[in-house]
Design a protein around this nucleic acid. Structure first.
Lengths: 170, 170
DNA sequence: AGATCATATGAGAGTAATCATCATTGGTGC
DNA sequence: GCACCAATGATGATTACTCTCATATGATCT
C-alpha cells in the first residue's frame, strides 16, 4: 500500500554559504529510530520526505497532513501529530512557535544552532538568518546562572524589506 | 461594584541591578489607553495590578483570571482575554510562548529589550537573564537583510542548576 | 514462508485554549 | 435624566491537539 523507494533526500542549505548541500540520509534516521526501538514506517518516511522537499518552510501539522495526503490520502491526522512529536523528540525536527496558535516544524540541520528567525509584524512572513554570535553568550549564561545550555532560539520582530518599500510608496 | 484606589504600583526589577525599582504608573497606562480611545476600566486596572503584584511570573490568561477572581469573582474570562490582547497591542504587556500550549504574559518594562529566558527542559521552570549583547546583532541584521528590527526574543533551552544537582545525586 | 507479538496506524470522540456573538451595563456629554 | 457607544459577562463556537481502541503491519524466530 505504501511504496516508497529508499532514496537519499537532499535539501539545499538555507544559510549564506550558497551552493552547499546538506544530505538527509534516510538510513541515518532509521538508525536513530531503531536505537529507541521505533520503526521507520512508510508514513514516517513520507513525512520526512515532505520536509526535505519543502526546505525553508515552517510547516504546521495541518500543512504536513495536506502535503502527505496528496500522495497518500489514507494517512490519518493523528499519525502526523504522533510522528511530528516523535521526530522532534529525536531532534530530527525542531518545533517553533511564531504566535499564530499552532506549532511549526523544520528539519534540524547541522547549522541549526546558528539559525534564527526574522518575523515581520506587518505581513507575518518568516525569514531566516544565521549567526554564531550567541556562542559566547551561552558560555556567559553557563557560568553566571549555572544553566547548562543545550540549544537556543532567537526571534527578531520588525518590518521586512518588502513591507518597508510598500510603506514608502504610500 | 469595582472599587480600586489609584495607587502607584511598584515592581522590583528582575535584572542584575539589585535594589532598583521600576514604577508602573496607572496614569501612564490611562494616557496610553486614552490616546487610542480606550478606557481604563476597573477590570483593566485590576489586571494591571495582578501583573505588578506578581513580578517575575509568566502568567497565562487562566492564571490572571484566577488571581483577579479572588478579589472580584464577577469578572468574565472573555474580559481577561480581551484585556490581555489590548495591553499586548499597546506594548504594556509582552506575549510569550514556552511551548506548553498557552500564551503567557509579563509587564513590558524599560529593560525588556535585554531580558531573555532560560527554559529548563527537565522541570519546565523559566528563569530570566539580561544581556545587551544582541544590540550589535540587530544592526548587522538591519544592514545585511534590510529588516528593521523592533524587538527580539531569545530563549535558551537546557538544564537548570537545580536539576543538574538532582541528577548528580543519583 | 508462516507464526508470533509488540508497535504503529486510522477513525473518531474528547479536551482545552481561545475567539465570536449578543444582550446588558455603565460612564460621558448633552 | 437621557442618548450614545464602548466594555462587560455569559455562553456557544472554533480549532489545534490528544486519547482510545480496534485493526494492521513489520521484525524476529523458526
Amino acid at each position: 500500500m505504501f511504496i516508497l523507494e529508499e532514496v537519499e533526500y537532499n535539501i539545499t542549505d538555507n544559510n549564506f554559504h550558497a551552493g552547499d548541500v546538506m544530505p538527509i540520509k534516510l538510513e541515518d534516521i532509521r538508525t536513530r529510530l531503531h536505537a529507541k526501538d521505533y520503526k521507520l514506517t512508510p508514513q514516517r518516511q513520507l513525512i520526512v520526505k515532505v520536509f526535505s522537499e519543502n526546505p525553508n518552510e515552517h510547516l504546521s501539522a495541518e500543512d504536513v497532513y495536506g502535503l502527505v495526503k496528496e500522495e497518500h490520502p489514507e494517512i490519518g491526522l493523528a499519525t502526523v501529530y504522533r510522528t511530528l512529536d516523535l521526530l522532534a523528540q529525536l531532534d530530527i525536527l525542531r518545533v517553533m512557535n511564531f504566535g499564530d496558535g499552532r506549532s511549526r516544524y523544520e528539519l534540524t540541520d547541522i547549522d541549526d544552532h546558528h539559525h534564527h528567525h526574522l518575523i515581520c509584524l506587518q505581513c507575518g512572513n518568516v525569514a531566516e538568518f544565521n549567526d554564531d554570535l550567541l556562542e559566547s553568550l551561552e558560555a556567559v549564561v553557563q557560568k553566571r546562572n549555572g544553566f547548562r545550555v543545550h540549544n537556543h532560539q532567537l526571534k527578531m520582530y520588525g518590518i521586512c524589506k518588502e513591507c518597508q518599500s510598500k510603506d514608502n510608496e504610500k
